[in-house]
Design a protein around this nucleic acid. Structure first.
Lengths: 135, 135
DNA sequence: TCTGAAGGTTATAGTAACTATAAGGTCAAT
DNA sequence: ATTGACCTTATAGTTACTATAACCTTCAGA
């Protein structure tokens, strides 16, 4: 095992992930339990640093922590086929596209609503009317 | 007050919102407390029905329950200007657009990742490599 | 050497918007 | 009378954190 050189705060600075979040990741087991200094401080190595960056990048792609747990485990089994990884990416892509579809529909409808406001009283408000009355 | 004619399940059927969720909305106060039958069953009127549809439509536009609480309160003050409503719509539109931007970036990157998979072993996997190594 | 600030530790509760579960009461039909 | 579908409540679980409290450690400056 390699040298433990970062405190949780230093690791946080280097990864952009807050100390509380790092501890949380440890608690739910997606980061291994950190080794400790004599006084009980967590100490991290460059490997921990890499793993945390992996997590951050995966989160940025919208993967859930559950998915990331699996990805990390896949990443460790060097000899296995990467089909599982590819499948996860594919699945995530579909989910993102589905969210995109929903959000685009929301955008259209909100634009429509926004355009129909004429600045009167609530009793004449087309927005409220639309929200209230359309099927 | 108008006639109370639906049970929670009937209201659920008519709105597509589940009984548990309707009760939940009552509990957090975005629906008024329903009146009760002799045996304690909740009873709803067509006004309740409308209000619930309002909530459902607003949810479909991505508004939070907090926002919807405010929208409902605005909708009730007929004499007020609808500027507040318009502002909420505008703000929601911006939020949706911001989410869209994030998701589009995710889609691009996932597409890129997905395209670079060549079906070998994990140790050669470009996806894992990318997740592990890029800044 | 003392002191105070900036960091570390734990445990617990709160967030959003539900969903799930348990344990029971009611109602209409057979 | 009993079944099944519905209703009631309360409590806990979900996701990915964030906030709070109460305390300990480390280090730089007076």
């Amino acid at each position: 095992m390699s040298k433990k050189i970062f405190t949780v705060g230093q690791l946080a600075d280097r990864t952009g992930i807050k100390p509380v979040t790092i501890r949380y990741y440890e608690k739910i087991g997606i980061l291994p339990a950190a080794s400790r200094s004599e006084s009980g401080y967590r100490l991290y190595s460059v490997e921990d640093h890499s793993k945390l960056l992996f997590i951050r990048r995966s989160r940025a792609l919208g993967f859930s922590l559950g998915d990331i747990r699996e990805l990390l485990s896949l990443a460790d089994s060097q000899q296995e086929s990467c089909a599982g990884v590819d499948a996860k990416v594919e699945q995530q892509l579909e989910q993102v596209r589905s969210r995109l579809k929903d959000l685009r529909a929301m955008e259209q409808e909100l634009k429509r609503l926004s355009a129909c406001c004429e600045g009167g009283m609530i009793m004449d408000c087309r927005i409220i009317e639309t929200l209230s009355c359309k099927t």
